[in-house]
Design a binder for these strands. Structure first.
Lengths: 334, 334
DNA sequence: ATTTTAAATGTAATCGATTACAGTCTGACT
DNA sequence: AGTCAGACTGTAATCGATTACATTTAAAAT
């Protein structure tokens, strides 16, 4: 390893001068600067990042906790985080938790041991182990989409899930639908409650029912969509419109509906949530709510960045705009 | 920050003893161990990871360079890398390069400055800046899927793209197709050459043509699939079977073919490559080649791990098995 | 009881870079 | 010429943990 000492010897100066030449060149004469730079080049020297970091006490890294790496929606968020982080000289440590709290604990612990300076949580759980909770008190942490559970309020970048669900519900009610069903995501989450509440509020206003047996599902996967439709089609009354709590579910649902010889949207309308890329290209193209995932990621980093600087926030909840994207998977009720 | 010194004072021992208690408890009496552990708990102490790392000279991190984070295929690879890395106490620094060489250089530079111990490249370019090339000579580096360009041979985990393409070609030839087209991916890559060569070899054996005007595309995206089909359908002769160089392209292609009022596979058969999750659930489900992406990722880390230990490899090229997945997007030629 | 040996603990050097402080040098000003 | 300010550069402390080596302590052997 070529270290600063070797370079200083090569250039015939002290290590301090080498360090200054690289970090604040204006403090150094042109002559010595040249000497040093040449020695640096000759030795192929790169400052040891670990060493600088111990000194500064900052790792310039953040951890991102993802419940499921294969979800393209999360990917867009991560892309946004990554981009924003890069611009500010931060790097991103990826933690695929698979919803497993042990792994969450482990990754979250990185912030406690100075391996990272802050944390972005894409899931809704408080990621630290119970015994670390106190320590974690002044850890910069931000969540995206979901709100972190617990008494302590952490900043969150989210969508108005209630309003977005209302928009979807209005859209379907506008088509004259009366028999609704929903294939929901993870039940323990805030998102689940808000989206369901949004749908319910519209249906109540219109005096339309959403009976319990029309609520199925439990995870944000294609398989959940398939299973969900199977269950729904076993019921005596067939729904004419299905709310899917994300696009993956909707993709599974549409697939299964067609498999039963029914048509989308003529027999059953399907709407999703997220607007992942592929949703525009399936058959029929999916009506869904667009979330500005990339921007949410960017914004999450920016907010985290403020916290990491030790400043405080004016707003703890940031709500980004959604957009209803009407495509061909929804249509008039028969 | 609570550091080791504070803990040592609290426990009434030296810092050395604290360090030993945590790293090799068997070297310490039970009595002192208890004292120390209690002090650790009381102070809420966590060893500063940065400090340990400077000392050991190892960061226990690796960088993964991804050309495009939104490609679900890469995601599965990353999932595998991540899992394997976690098991060995490594963390993964994610570098979304967008194919931009400046960003590649920047991320690759992390290994040179001890921010990471090794590198996995999912793209085909040599990721270091030209001036760093010499330094990079003894950097542990592995590529997945693509082979890294340049004279120096780096280990690679890949598929037998030639054989897999031949399998696809045989599949379509077996259905009696005679008029072929291909929507290819990035032309500069090794993969492009191998897949094309595989297809060509089978067609030549069968005396079937693959004229230049039937080769379109140039990137691995849904849009490339759409554009590709548009171009192909402008030609005087319509192909009856299209090779798409990945599933995203195929999804775009199928979408566009249907838009023109043609049926898949009755009018045109379409085959993809990768077997991403959604491919099984589009309409019609896609015939494709399954790559064991997750295992490729795992294996890549394992190989990198060997290099990082300074050991040498017996095999520099590792070829994982593919599987032809026949679904309904391909069928008999009319 | 004394010597030998091993185990436990402490002291201080170390990793590589940064930076407060001290020292040196140049040139300007009187 | 002598003094002083200001610009450069060097010395050494520092970040927090680890560990070679030295020292102390306890147990075992004679």
């Amino acid at each position: 390893m070529t270290n600063i000492k070797k370079v200083s010897e090569l250039a015939g100066v002290s290590t301090a001068t080498v360090s200054r030449t690289l970090k604040s060149p204006e403090q150094v004469t042109e002559a010595t600067r040249d000497k040093v730079m040449q020695a640096v080049k000759q030795a192929g020297y790169r400052p040891n990042w670990l060493a600088s970091s111990v000194k500064s006490g900052k790792s310039n890294s953040i951890v991102v906790l993802v419940p499921n790496l294969t979800n393209p929606f999360f990917l867009r968020i991560i892309g946004g985080i990554e981009q924003a982080a890069q611009e500010k000289g931060y790097s991103v440590l990826l933690g695929d938790t698979q919803g497993d709290s042990k792994r969450e604990n482990e990754y979250a612990g990185m912030v406690l041991s100075n391996r990272a300076d802050g944390l972005i949580q894409l899931d809704h759980s408080f990621p630290f182990a119970p015994q670390d909770a106190e320590l974690a008190d002044n850890v910069p942490m931000v969540s995206v989409c979901e709100r972190i559970e617990g008494e302590r309020k952490y900043p969150v970048i989210e969508l108005d899930n209630y309003a977005a669900s209302r928009a979807l519900a209005h859209h379907l009610v506008g088509y004259g639908h009366q028999k609704f069903a929903a294939i929901v995501g993870q039940i323990s989450s805030q998102i689940y409650r808000e989206r369901l509440a949004g749908i319910r509020s519209v249906l109540q206003e219109e005096n339309l029912p959403l009976p319990d047996e029309m609520l199925v599902g439990g995870s944000y996967t294609i398989e959940a969509g398939i299973d969900g439709v199977r269950q729904l089609l076993k019921q005596p009354v067939r729904p004419t419109a299905i709310f899917c709590f994300n696009d993956d579910i909707a993709i599974g649902a549409i697939h299964e509906i067609k498999k039963h010889g029914l048509r989308v949207p003529q027999d059953i309308s399907v709407v999703g949530f997220d607007n992942i890329k592929v949703s525009a290209f399936i058959d029929p193209p999916l009506t869904t709510v667009d979330q500005p995932a990339y921007d949410m990621g960017r914004r999450a980093f920016e907010v985290l960045s403020v916290l990491m600087r030790g400043e405080s926030l004016t707003r703890i909840r940031e709500i980004l705009p959604f957009q209803l994207v009407e495509r061909q998977s929804s249509g008039p009720a028969r």
